[in-house]
Every structure is written in C-alpha cells, then in structure tokens.
C-alpha cells in the first residue's frame, strides 16, 4: 500500500537520506530501526510531506504523493504521529481528538467512541487540558488523535521515547491491537528489541541508507543486528 522508491533527501549540503526504498503492505507492521541520526525521522517526514525528496517517488494507494502538500496526504489516509508527543497543550483532550478529525467531514462520534474504547484513560481525562497529562497519556493522546483521521496507514515516530518500560509495553500492545483491527503500521523506533518483536518486517537504517532488511524474526536472531542494536 505504501511504496517508497529511491528517495534522496538533503538538509542544505548534507545528504541525509541516500536512495532509501521501502515498502509497507496492507495489514503489516513494518519497523524502521537504526541509531541516532541514521535518518529514521527524516524518512517519515519525507513520506508525510514535511520534507521533499530530490529523486524517486512515494506511492500510496496507487498514487504518487511525492509532491502533495502534507494536509493532502493526511486526507488520503496516511497519518503521522510526530516524535516527541506533540499535543495541543492548551486544548482539552477532547478538543485535541476533535482536531485530529480535522480533515474529515461529517460525524466523528463513532470514531471518537472507538478511540476512547482503545484508550480508556483518555475518556477519564477528556475535559482535562492536554498540557497537564503525563508523558504516557500524552503519547496515547497523539496516537488517538492520529486515529481520528481514520488512517489506512499509521506512521509512528518513536512512540516509546522517554516512557517507563511498563508504559512502553502498553503502547506497543495498543499498536498491535490497532494493527489487528485493520490499520497498517509503519513504526520508527530506537527501542529495536521491542519494535522487532512486534514487526512483520523490518528495515535497518544506517547513516542514510538501508543496511539490512528482513522479517522481524530474522533480524532479531541475526548476530550482527544483535551486536549492533540489541546490546549483545
């Protein structure tokens, strides 16, 4: 459903992404792992239209979305959960979720109920101003907000960042549930162990290009990967 073909992204003179290609099929969880500064977030930003690739193409549901504005890409059903829990701090939880449905017309009540069912914690706090939520709750909120747009493919940028291990497990369990309910997932993670354990397939990014790819199981069992990313 998503096919990224040979993209090259530059930050000024710096060649950040060098000919990356990857693919997400319907119903899959695909993860993109790699060290700090490898270019994981840059790839996501390019897919969601915040950055532009100089070459290649990005095909989503048989349409080249390379030159589309980012809000048009969200309308097509490709939602991104940006890195670092970016909630609308001064709005309530409910209003944050409403903003998530910004690109949709018509009734959003059903979706809202589903999101609340998925994240009961958000229902409890729905009138609370988002800035007062804990880190884990804010992460749930940004995920819920992205789901409000009814995405066919959800891209998550480091959802585990800065969260306690128990919360990371919760977040990953939710990602798996979402996937079972029909949302395809592209997951960018530093926490390679966790990411590989739930992923159908994985790509390892090294200084701007794909070093290894394979199924989650293959990579978790590979000696090189274990040494480089999983800590022995």
């Amino acid at each position: 459903m998503l096919k990224v073909d040979n993209i090259n992204v530059y930050y000024g003179a710096i060649h950040a992404i060098k000919g990356v290609s990857l693919e997400v099929n319907e119903g899959e969880i695909v993860t993109l792992i790699g060290a700090n500064g490898a270019g994981k977030s840059t790839v996501l930003k390019t897919i969601s239209g915040l950055l532009r690739s100089k070459t290649g193409e990005i095909i989503f549901l048989d349409e080249n979305i390379c030159s589309l504005a980012s809000h048009k890409i969200v309308e097509r059903g490709l939602a991104q959960v940006p890195e670092g829990r970016r909630v609308f701090l001064q709005m309530t939880v409910q209003e944050n979720l409403e903003m998530g449905a910004y690109t949709r017309r018509g009734n959003i009540k059903g979706t809202m109920e589903k999101v609340y069912a998925q994240f009961p914690r958000l229902l409890e706090r729905r009138k609370q101003v988002a800035g007062t939520l804990s880190g884990g709750e804010q992460q749930m909120l940004v995920m819920g907000r992205a789901l409000m747009s009814h995405p066919k493919l959800l891209m998550l940028d480091e959802p585990s960042m800065g969260l306690a291990p128990i919360l990371v497990e919760q977040i990953f369990a939710i990602i798996q549930t979402l996937n079972k309910e029909g949302t395809s997932i592209l997951l960018v993670e530093q926490n390679a162990q966790m990411a590989l354990s739930i992923a159908d397939r994985a790509y390892v990014l090294e200084t701007g290009s794909i070093a290894v790819s394979g199924t989650g199981r293959e990579l978790i069992e590979s000696d090189n990967i274990r040494k480089a990313y999983l800590g022995g």
Partner: peptide, 16 residues
C-alpha cells in the same frame, strides 16, 4: 489556535 499551540502537530493532523 492549533497552529499556535504546536505547528508540527497541526501539520500532522492535516491543517494547511
């Protein structure tokens, strides 16, 4: 107001 609160989040939910 969403733009004011957080521009990146606003872009990610599809606000032009």
């Amino acid at each position: 107001m969403a733009l004011r609160d957080n521009r990146i989040a606003a872009e990610s939910v599809g606000i032009p």
